[in-house]
Computed example of a mutant assay.
Amino acid sequence: MATEDREPGIILTDEEKKRRRQRNVAIALALTALCVLFWAVTLVKGPAMFNRPM
């Protein structure tokens, strides 16, 4: 395969690259917040959540 024959594809502008980065940071922050929330709920409930009737 010759790489010289390939066309470059989609080229993003600087504004599009900036928006993509901001979107990625927002997704990462939301995912981190969700993980912290799950961890905090598990910590608060503690081992008592395993002693419930089935």
Rank of each mutant, 00 (worst) to 15 (best):
V44D: 02
R23A: 15
P47S: 03
I11E: 02
A33C: 13
T13K: 01
A33F: 14
R19Y: 07
V36E: 05
V36N: 05
A33I: 14
P8L: 09
W39E: 05
Q22A: 08
I27R: 13
A30P: 00
L12H: 08
I10R: 12
G9R: 00
L12W: 03
A48T: 09
R19G: 00
P47R: 06
L12G: 00
A2V: 06
T13W: 01
D14Q: 04
W39K: 03
W39M: 12
T3C: 05
W39Y: 12
T42W: 13
A26D: 13
R52D: 07
R21M: 10
D14A: 02
K45N: 08
R6I: 08
R52W: 13
E15R: 02
E16Q: 15
R23L: 15
T42R: 12
T42F: 08
K18P: 01
V41R: 04
F50R: 05
L43H: 10
N24V: 04
F50T: 08
V25Q: 12
I27W: 09
A40P: 02
F50Q: 04
L34M: 11
A30I: 02
E4F: 03
V25Y: 03
T13P: 02
M1D: 13
L29Q: 10
T42L: 07
K45R: 09
V36S: 12
A28M: 08
M49N: 03
R23D: 13
L12M: 07
T32M: 11
V44W: 12
L34K: 11
